[in-house]
Design a protein around this nucleic acid. Structure first.
Lengths: 291, 291
DNA sequence: CGAAAAATGTCAATAATTTTCCAAAGCATT
DNA sequence: AATGCTTTGGAAAATTATTGACATTTTTCG
């Protein structure tokens, strides 16, 4: 039962599970551009969301409105209630929660980190790093510390899709010597090291460096000691008011690097992606057949 | 001559002298409640401003619009999200690089995702999820799909530090039945499922749900089918102009959840952290001694 | 893999909105 | 105070939007 005084956003959330595919398509278009996307005529709103008009009409009835005009009316009243125009609309991230709510506090801190991180990137270093990561002639080794191993895994998953010869050095350092043995000039090492720097990683980086391996380091704002042997290093701001550190900015920088590498590798990557998709589809078929 | 790209507000100001008395009446009503007053039907908007419909129709033509619908369209475009959020203010993230540089393009897309994700979180759902995640009486199972396994690993690393009884279900689904066997009411399942939804995960979620396990789902903007059996689900916007999806927003939401859980668990966690630190220090000593 | 069910889009009828036209009212000027 | 111009609002015409019925496609389940 939809609450009579609920906002359109809340109603969509409540009924989200019961919405059909196209209805969800429209719901998302609305949430992405709230509330403007719902204030145009039903025809326009529908075609902007790439669904048909009746779909929208049916959906607003599902949400509890008599028809599209009533739905628009509700959106308009919300817009008036928030008082001032779109400029002041979102002082808080999660508008319905107070400023002191953890969600807003966290979002504020994390975006500040992202801002600091990105405004301190040297774009030439960044481009150079992307070039290195795209060098398919050599191997690409990826390694991380305790916390950053998840980032290393994420990097591995993506670089593996983009290019060949990618190796994920697991976080247990016992296996590292075997990898070092095979390292040679022309190879690249992507290394993650954030606060609570691990001496193992430094030792690994030194040995790799001695063997002529190019090192790309992703570290925190205080910079891991590995920076001294790294060819390119990137600092990520990670401080939040908490006992642990946030890696949101790190993740975003990593993704930017992945995006840049992919752009360099294109169009080889394109072909690779398609083959990969096919392989996954086949795996799916394998799994479904016995059921 | 009215500038083609001027806002409605600006156009009104420019032509203010040439407006007639009733037109000015409407103009003021619009400026007092901008832009909502201009988004209703012409009949309503006119009667709210206590002028007649033709007056409004004539006026918007004076302002340079073909008709009332075109005028409304202009208002709507002004209202559209671009440039209004807390992050979008910054035009270039990496100031020294041009706007078209990948870093800036990526940062723009990613922050828009973050903005959309956070403005669509239901704070009550979020709080409820944090409560569940903090329930140390039951087990906390964490599982992810192919791409999201890195996120699952990250979640595991942190929740393990915060609380007891945390289990990371590896991405190979062959081992899942064993875990399901042990699941019981009071347990919680934190599940990651983003585009290219995996049927395995859905099956797992259904079985867990039947055993009375509470399910928290972190998914993408289109919502995985798991949402229908999940107790709390969170949508993350992941689209970037690329062949793959960005999980920056997902990561940030996950970190917010970790932060909230930690806040609930404190001070038990405090003690736990200290013991953990000690253990890591000891490990370091072990490793250093033989060198 | 096939049948049943659900969902989606096309089309047409209906309802609403916008616009135009015209007469009445207001206002300034002589 | 009267005339002519401008402005205003009522009502009808034209346009556009909305909704319901139906056929097609897609999905789900056995």
């Amino acid at each position: 039962m939809t609450n009579a005084s609920a906002t359109v956003r809340e109603r969509i959330r409540q009924l989200h599970a019961e919405l059909t595919r196209s209805e969800r398509k429209f719901a998302n278009a609305l949430l992405e551009n709230y509330p403007a996307a719902g204030l145009a005529s039903i025809t326009l709103a529908a075609s902007n969301a790439e669904v048909s008009t009746p779909t929208v009409a049916r959906m607003v009835q599902k949400l509890g409105y008599r028809g599209y005009p009533q739905f628009q009316q509700a959106l308009l009243e919300e817009l008036q209630a928030t008082g001032s125009g779109p400029t002041q609309r979102r002082a808080n991230w999660v508008a319905e929660a107070p400023e002191a709510h953890l969600l807003n506090r966290f979002a504020k801190a994390a975006t500040q980190n992202i801002e600091r991180t990105f405004s301190n990137i040297d774009s030439r270093q960044f481009d150079a790093a992307a070039q290195l990561l795209a060098q398919q002639a050599g191997m690409l080794y990826i390694v991380g510390g305790r916390i950053s191993s998840a980032l290393a895994l994420y990097a591995f998953t993506h670089f593996q899709a983009i290019r060949s010869h990618v190796v994920h050095m697991t976080s247990s350092s016992a296996t590292w010597p075997h990898y070092v043995l095979d390292m040679a000039e022309g190879d690249t090492l992507l290394l993650f090291d954030v606060r609570r720097y691990e001496t193992n990683l430094l030792r690994l980086a030194k040995q790799a460096s001695e063997r002529g391996v190019r090192i790309i380091l992703i570290t925190d704002q205080w910079a891991s000691p590995v920076a001294s042997v790294a060819d390119h290093s990137f600092q990520c701001w990670i401080e939040i008011p908490s006992a642990w550190d946030s890696n949101s900015a790190t993740m975003m920088l990593l993704e930017a690097l992945i995006a840049a590498t992919q752009e360099v590798c294109w169009p080889e990557t394109k072909d690779r992606y398609e083959r990969l998709e096919n392989l996954f589809d086949m795996t799916r078929l394998f799994k479904q057949s016995p059921s």
